[in-house]
Design a protein around this nucleic acid. Sequence first.
DNA 1: CTGAAAGCGCTAACAC
DNA 2: GTGTTAGCGCTTTCAG
Lengths: 362, 362
Amino acid sequence: MPVCTAQLAVSEMVLTQRSNARRPTLEDVARWSGVSKSTVSRVVNGESKVSAEAAVRVREAISALGYVPNQAARQLVTRRTGAVAVVAAQPEDRLFLDPFFDCLLRGIRAELARHGSQAVLLFLDEPDDYARVADYLGGGHVDGAILFSLRPGDRLPEMVDRLALPAVFGGRPLLCDGDPVRGQAYVDGDNRGGARQAVRHLLALGRRRIATVTGPYDQENSAAERLAGYRDVLLDMPHLVERADYTRQGGADAMAALLDRHPDLDAVFVASDLMASGALQTLRERGRRVPEDVAVVGFDDLVSLSETTDPPLTTVHQDVAEMGRLLARLLFGRTEQDTREGDTSEVPSVVVPTRLVVRQSA
Amino acid sequence: MPVCTAQLAVSEMVLTQRSNARRPTLEDVARWSGVSKSTVSRVVNGESKVSAEAAVRVREAISALGYVPNQAARQLVTRRTGAVAVVAAQPEDRLFLDPFFDCLLRGIRAELARHGSQAVLLFLDEPDDYARVADYLGGGHVDGAILFSLRPGDRLPEMVDRLALPAVFGGRPLLCDGDPVRGQAYVDGDNRGGARQAVRHLLALGRRRIATVTGPYDQENSAAERLAGYRDVLLDMPHLVERADYTRQGGADAMAALLDRHPDLDAVFVASDLMASGALQTLRERGRRVPEDVAVVGFDDLVSLSETTDPPLTTVHQDVAEMGRLLARLLFGRTEQDTREGDTSEVPSVVVPTRLVVRQSA
DNA sequence: CTGAAAGCGCTAACAC
DNA sequence: GTGTTAGCGCTTTCAG
């Protein structure tokens, strides 16, 4: 193979070149098959009131001409695009290394597919992205948007609201001061309740020096909630808190710091499985046995992770895929929750319960 | 292929609900500001021939009304959407755990942004996805597509070709039999050449029992090329090959298998950094010193990985972000490379050179 | 500089 | 069943 072959002839035409061969329109199909546009339209849209023979001829014409409907035109009249934007505000690097998003997205895509909608993923990373994404969302490219990983005070909820675009949030959207943004539908896990379950479990095991490795609680609501849950349970007991960033390495480092400061700790609630896997590694390197010396409980229950750590991780289970599905269903106004009549002021949102999965680390 | 969009009954209404509050149109703005639609259009599109006062009034109207142009309508006439699809054929789980895609996507997004285009990411995972993605791509939602991680024999290149949608491929698209798909523009790394550099380096170090951990060479061209490069150099020497799957764990397992079968190996070329980090771990666990006992060379040079392994990884550097940028630039037909006249039969493609980065593992 | 008019390709009444 | 007729909201000649 030639190295660095740069045969870029005719390059500047790439984007227009091929489209110059005008794509066949509904009208072309109609002419070709000798019927009217309406009939073709009916066939394309699978309506019933079309004679069998007409339908056949139209279908022939369609494949002969290689006709593909122009969505822009269709959309202009139907007001529907068949696409839903999934906006991830998280910087990509975090996102791509976190299996959490994989599950969530899978759930979203599955549910969207059931509705015949295509999920399109957009990233919100640099400041510039806001304007472009807002343009995109407001431009009628999509029927709705699912947004997540927004930081407190993110201006996207407000922007979306102004666009009058149906939207739901993964994780409760917060204002700068930590107050919830009003009037936005969201799906969230029961972070606080889950954390409580985890810490209570540790307590029930007889542990008394229970530490916690937290997420970036000043930036992510889930992290703040999980820390709150920890505090709820350990009201009058010592709080051994180390903040990390939801990464594996961060978890490892935080665990090390915790061990340095509190060599006598006998349990730790780590606010995510990814961080827990890092913590486990530190514990091993420091010669602490898990769970004998230190009991460990994680959060998320990303099975690919929690089942394969050594030892397998006791963790708070979140049905992430279900959350994804719910998000999509909520967007389509189809949440299983009953809609309470007349209570229009209340935006339908759902907090998904968690449960503790006991494996071997605690 | 007749493309028929799925019918949506109830959900359709839900999603249009909020938009019932009719969004202001160009015409509304025109009336509000007492000018014609044309003038408003000119202001919106930043044209020069508009009097200052008219422009001001129009702008007032726009913000007063909260006007956002309807892209579908605009697109219907301009034939431009301002969006480019990035299609990842890889199952998500792999994708999300591989830092490679993060860099690539970043490069793509950066370049696209320079052209004012929004990148929208689509996944191709289950069989169903093909039809929906094809509909989407053919539906005029995007100006072009960047596709990658296609398996040999994937039918997407052909589908895209029929749609007459400008497209470029990340990694050379292959037919089932391993032959390249003709007529498709692609950007690829110099996998074979890079592998040669790696193995030659090992040879120069005096190693003589050089093994390799490969990617899934029956499914991914890059893996096949890297293996070929290994073979190129070790023509008359023993080939110690273990196939893995481009995951960290796979790399660790393959390394273990290699050690079992060839306890005397003194070097290993691992076909990706992610796998190499796994291999390094196995080596450590088995008590082999790196590079004293076994020299290790990786591939990709994902700095976040290769610089943080223990010891830091000697690896084949690929400028992944640059590849991403090139992909986008190629799509826009604006590659900096010279254009050779009259050579229209040759599709512009580029193979990006690699270079060996020597750190401490070899 | 500005406006009027003609579509872009499609669907949706409404007649036949 | 099928064709006819209006637009959907925008850009774009082409006159003024």
